[in-house]
Design a protein around this nucleic acid. Structure first.
Length: 468
RNA sequence: GGCGCAGUAGCCAAGCGGUAAGGCAAUGGUCUGCAACACCAGUACGCACCGGUUCAAAUCCGGUCUGCGCCUCCA
């Protein structure tokens, strides 16, 4: 299995630190609002990485945090006149609902920054002892960036370039030894949540939490650290500095980063008004469609989001689901016999799709390619299967489809929705009318239902309905 | 100013040295009381442009144009 490592800028063969086990950390969201579809990309992508690793037989210890102390949370709390904790708690719950609806597996541990303050104080103290950090008059603690020789190895920047970088809005604080030093601990402001520390009453800087939580739940050395590409600098660069300066060991072996999600070819931002929450997408689509859409491009490429693209993704997913549905339908009526000789040959022949799927995924999780293999399987199934097929053959093919889709986190079974009784009755009446060849009445009922927003389709599996 | 990514059919998107996967849409067909759905079948002499290397280039090298990202909170 090859993975692209941001550290080396190359695809590398994946070899875990410990045979058969994977230690993986994914930077989670700051919970100050409902998550947006940009937040959803790393969740979906790295959940898929995890699923594939598990499929390959690895035992994956997957840790993903919730940042529950932060300026934006405090700001939101002030706006609503409630505590910061109330805000973070609320949006963690909402986020978990969204994750479930996107079929993102729960992490082995979902640590909260506010519950790991002790570990942070400990790491900051060690960094000060080792000369990698210093505190200032007001109790702010900074990381001494220039002291860490490898600084810049992830983002491939060197300190002088960084400093020479033209930035209009460059806020440098007077008490820093160097403009590049970043905050580990900062004093509270009036009304803000705070914790006691040797330096002042205050709260942690953003970067320290991930270093600490990763260490606590996965150890000083981990296999994979992942997140959005925007986190490469400064967040992940700073994490490396903190962890490696503190532990004296290589922090993470592989660094994976997903590309950004754009809206109509523009960066998503509130000011442009092109900001979508996962919840808003859910009003219009099953979140499986969102997931399928996100996996239809390579995770490192930028991905454009638009209404048309979602619609295309929906139609594509439907093709896969229809094929699965058809297998189920045929299976229900199939003869319970063993595979015929030719079916056994076809079955054997379809092994190739599993092999191809795996080699796509082995190549840096090429889900776009993997999905194309699923479509090839769909076509194969559609052309090889009919009313005369044996139950064994049908069921095996169905299981094979499920196997591949499950790795992608795509669910094939659809939730059964319940119709109002009145509509149910009309559908039954229409069926009766059709049987008596009273097509006028049948069409009349179809029109009535259409006006109620129900579209009927007469398929060979019986009448199907969907909402307009 | 520095660092970096990308340009493949109407749209999306794999391929990354051996002669263009897959999906959506459009088109033709099969099925159906009709409609819809579903299924099947075609669909790029070509991979932004100009040069170069090679027996062979969408893939490597140089240049040009265009779009985008990071360097500041951000997934």
């Amino acid at each position: 299995m090859k993975v692209y490592n941001t550290l080396s800028k190359k695809k590398e063969t994946f070899t875990p630190l410990e045979e058969g086990k994977v230690k993986m950390y994914v930077c989670g969201p700051t919970v100050y609002n409902l998550i947006h579809i940009g937040n959803a990309r790393p969740m979906i992508v790295f959940d898929t990485v995890r699923r594939y690793m598990e499929y390959k037989g690895y035992e994956v210890n997957f840790v993903s945090n919730f940042t529950d102390v932060d300026d934006k949370i405090i700001k939101k709390a002030v706006e609503e006149g409630v505590s910061a904790q109330e805000i973070s708690k609320r949006y963690i719950e909402e986020c978990k609902k969204d994750m479930e609806n996107m079929n993102v597996k729960t992490a082995t541990v979902h640590p909260l920054a506010t519950e790991e303050i002790d570990g942070m104080l400990e790491m900051i103290s060690t960094l000060i002892e080792k000369g990698y950090a210093y505190s200032t008059a007001d109790g702010t603690v900074y990381f001494r960036t220039r002291k860490f020789k490898d600084y810049g190895k992830l983002s491939h920047k060197n300190l002088d370039e960084l400093q020479a970088g033209h930035r209009d809005i460059k806020v440098t604080r007077e008490d820093k030894e160097d403009a590049l030093d970043f905050v580990l601990w900062k004093p509270k402001k009036e009304g803000e949540p705070y914790w006691e520390s040797p330096w002042c009453q205050g709260r942690p800087g953003w970067h320290i939490e991930c270093s600490v939580m990763s260490k606590k739940y996965l150890g000083e050395e981990i296999d994979i650290h992942a997140g959005g590409e925007d986190l490469i600098f400064p967040h992940h660069e700073n994490e490396i500095a903190q962890s490696e300066a503190c532990n004296g060991k290589i922090f993470a072996k592989y660094w994976l980063h997903n590309g950004f999600l754009n809206i109509d070819n523009k960066k998503m931002s509130k000011s442009l008004g092109n900001f979508f929450t996962v919840r808003e997408i859910q009003e219009k689509y099953d979140l499986q469609v969102l997931r399928f859409f996100m996996l239809s491009a390579h995770y490192r490429s930028p991905l454009n989001f638009s209404a048309d693209l979602m619609e295309a993704a929906k139609n594509g997913l439907d093709r896969i689901r229809n094929s699965a549905k058809n297998l189920n339908y045929l299976s229900q009526n199939a003869k319970v016999v063993q595979m015929a000789e030719q079916e056994a040959e076809f079955w054997k022949e379809s092994d190739v799709f599993v092999t191809k799927f795996e080699s796509s995924m082995d190549d840096d999780f090429n889900t776009a390619d993997a999905i194309s293999v699923v479509f090839e399987l769909v076509k194969y199934i559609n052309t090889k299967v009919n009313e005369a097929s044996s139950k064994e053959f049908l069921d095996k093919l169905y299981q094979r489809m499920c196997l591949l889709c499950d790795i992608l986190g795509i669910i094939l079974e659809e939730k059964e929705e319940i119709l109002e009784e009145e509509i149910e009755t009309l559908i039954t009446e229409r069926q009766a009318a059709r049987k008596e060849k009273n097509f006028a009445r049948a069409d009349e009922i179809r029109d009535i239902l259409l006006k109620k927003g129900i579209i009927l389709e007469d398929t060979r599996e019986g009448v199907k309905w969907k909402k307009a």
